[in-house]
Amino acid sequence: MTAESKKLDQLIEQARQGKQSPQPERDLWGGIEQALVRSSRRPLQGFGWLWASAACMVLVVAGLTFNGLQQTEQAGVSQTQLLLTMLNQQHQQQRQLVLTHYQQVGWDGRSEFVKHELEQIRASIDEVSEQLMQEPSNQQLWQLLQWLYQKELELLESQFKETNPLQQV
């Protein structure tokens, strides 16, 4: 085996291990996401389980806030923050799911209908989340947050219905 052959084998091995591989120079996900939203044509499914999971979250929150908040105060705000982050993420997922499903049946997601209210809800979610950092044991605030989440999903659905009324019948 020549020295070159050995060197080539080494280089190949490095490439196989993913060392110093060519890397993309720009973001790729944005384009993929757009294409998925536009092109997919999966049938619309019911969101019954989605509401159910929202209801579950209320229980989770109730449990967590009830049991965990004493420690929270000592351990700094991190637990509340974690919980909020988790809830907000979960809501984002559900929101994305609703959007994707409607976009898959041909809705481009643009609608002026209740746009203002949706913005208000978004702002309120932020506002309530912030307040919860101050008052993590305020049950009513947690419930208000859950309600806002649910309201936002409902409004997204109503935007779709309003823009595509024929999907109703």
Binding site: G18, S21, P22, Q23, P24, L28, W29, I32, E33, L36, R42, Q45, Q89, Q92, Q93, Q96, L97, T100, H101
Partner: peptide
Amino acid sequence: RGDMQAFQQLFERHYKWVYALVWR
């Protein structure tokens, strides 16, 4: 099941070597 965030995570895990493969 349509969870695009999960798919994005899969993308994050694998896009580097997919890119390397198709680049080569």
